[in-house]
Design a binder for these strands. Structure first.
Ligand SMILES: [Zn+2]
Ligand SMILES: [Zn+2]
Length: 515
DNA sequence: CCATGCGGGAGCA
DNA sequence: TGCTCCCGCATGG
């Protein structure tokens, strides 16, 4: 988010109490944050967007709104379309932008029902990779685009790698760039503009763009008909993007696996094997959560522990890719000091496979195919993001939710007493999925058309938005290992984060000494 | 066939 | 009661 609101301009530490088991007050998400002193709780929800005359200048640095704001600014200046948005930021596109109206993204984003017809939510599906992590003739890796359609996607998974001669199979590398869960995109049409907000950093390579994937699909169909004959990998020339500030996603620097310079530990803690505190221990983050889920409900393949292999094995891959694509650096602000760069650097190992931080610098590391043990049951793979569930501690523990994000209102369970976290304008935008249909159900006011962009905008115009944004759930409560798994682990957030708190109360998070 | 969006309803707390 | 996820439907390319 390059955003903007007073709050977002201020990389203020987040108000984080309960959920993280952290000491309230000091949540050094962004130690260099300018100070601000507006007590949390003073704002009624957000800054500068209370129907005032604020107008966006079109620069993403000036976005002082949150997608959930009741009133979004009227703007005459718009941002150029970003095909590969990553990170927490906002954009305002022209209402007549075809890309924006179609909610286009280079990432494979699937629609998520948030029961809010005004705001379209999508979550990232990740990327299809070769289980053997093979290299194409071009030197690139196989990064196919997951089908948005569940059914089609199921068919993709397990297919032979399109790389001639490779015996690998396509594996879905799920996105967990939003604190362990898929990155989410929000689209909202209002004021003849298309407001876009993204949450999370994709932790996987970019999938092939749509048009190319279409070719791939056809190729696969052909392949099936030809009974096993391998198809060739997709060409690499991008054709789909209409507008994009994208750089060349294929620019990669290959370096020996031992030379990686960063890790992708969760922002709140380094869980690198080099970290004595966390090595071979249950990680209190989403990763550990995943590991402990018998049903492998959520993105288990990235859990260093999930396969039962040692960390070394898990992290051993053919090589590490460092993809530097700085052509679209986020503006100075929160994003600059986010995850993958400062926070994770020095952590040499963590994931069994790729990690990648878009925009500023991408780092990904692939393990061997065996390591990328994919495999979430389909039902889960295609499931919605648990990040949508505010009951999930991940949400509460997510820096993007608790720190990076602009928060629209305080969660009910958060102590909003000033002083516990003397930061200004901390807004919590929970980023959950479904809005309560009982509270927001435009279909009650409008024809139940299945319009897309138009309907969003139309409804926005006519409907006085009153969106509830505070988490109403028990974000600090013990969480089940999966929303519906039934296996209720006794999660004790407090204990879970015992080892996290220290890092939270120091700057180690930003310069993980333990890594 | 699939992308995309909508939304009913189940399941859980 | 509130909320999220599952899953099917409709539409359009
Ligand atoms: Zn392969
Ligand atoms: Zn992603």
């Amino acid at each position: 988010m390059i955003a903007s609101s007073e709050s977002s301009l201020v990389p203020a530490p987040s108000q984080c109490s309960g959920p993280h088991g952290m000491t309230p007050g000091l949540c050094p998400d962004y130690p260099h944050s300018p100070s601000a002193s507006k007590p949390v709780g003073q704002h009624m929800g957000h800054t500068g967007t209370q129907g005032n005359s604020m107008t966006s200048r079109g620069s993403h640095q000036s976005h002082q709104w949150d997608i959930n704001d009741s009133t979004l600014p009227v703007t005459e200046a718009h941002d150029s379309f970003e095909l590969w948005p990553s990170g927490h930021y906002r954009r305002v596109y022209r209402g007549d932008s075809d890309d924006a109206r179609r909610h286009v993204s280079g990432w494979a984003m699937r629609n998520t029902n948030n029961h809010n017809a005004l705001i379209l939510k999508k979550s990232c599906l990740g990327v299809l990779v070769c289980s053997l992590d093979c290299l194409l003739d071009s030197g690139r890796k196989v990064h196919l685009r997951p089908a948005i359609c569940d059914k089609a996607r199921r068919k993709q998974i397990g297919k032979p790698c399109p790389n001639p001669g490779c015996q690998g199979k396509l594996t879905l590398l799920s996105c967990r760039g939003h604190c362990g869960y898929p990155v989410t995109h929000f689209w909202r049409h209002v004021n003849n503009s298309v407001f876009f907000q993204a949450k999370g950093y994709h932790d996987h390579p970019r999938p092939e763009v749509k048009s190319l994937s279409d070719k791939g699909r056809h190729a696969f169909s052909k392949q099936l008909r030809q009974d096993g004959e391998r198809i060739f990998s997709m060409p690499t020339k991008r054709r789909f993007p209409v507008h994009t500030s994208d750089d060349d996603p294929e620019r990669k620097i290959y370096i020996p696996s031992g030379e990686e310079v960063m890790c992708s530990c969760p922002p709140f803690e380094c869980v690198c094997p080099k970290s004595a505190q966390t090595k071979n221990t249950f990680m209190p983050s989403a990763f550990g959560f995943i590991r402990d889920s018998p049903s492998h409900t959520y993105l288990p393949h990235r859990s260093p522990s999930v396969s039962g292999l040692g960390m070394e094995q898990l992290t051993h891959g053919p090589f590490t890719q460092i993809n530097i694509t700085n052509t679209c650096l986020p503006a100075p602000g929160l994003e600059v000091s986010i995850p993958g760069i400062d926070i994770y650097k020095n952590c040499s190992k963590f994931a069994p496979h790729s990690y990648y931080h878009d925009n500023d610098m991408k780092i990904f590391r692939y393990g061997s195919g065996e390591v990328i043990n994919n495999p979430l049951p389909h039902g889960q793979h295609f499931g919605r993001s648990p990040m949508d569930d505010l009951r999930s501690p991940q949400v509460a523990n997510c820096p993007s939710s608790a720190g990076l994000q602009h928060m629209n209102s305080m969660p009910r369970n958060f102590s909003s007493s000033a002083g516990t976290c003397n930061q200004p304008n901390i807004y919590i935008n929970d980023g959950r999925d479904d809005y309560s249909r009982y509270r927001i159900n435009p279909s009650h006011c409008y024809n139940k058309g299945r319009g897309m962009a138009g309907s969003l905008e139309d409804r926005s115009h006519a409907l006085g938005l009153s969106l509830k944004t505070e988490p109403t759930e028990h974000v600090f409560r013990d969480m089940p290992s999966s929303p519906h798994g039934g296996q209720t682990r006794n999660y004790h957030p407090e204990s879970m984060y015992n080892s996290v708190s220290p890092s939270f109360n120091s700057h180690s998070m930003l310069s993980p000494k333990n890594c």
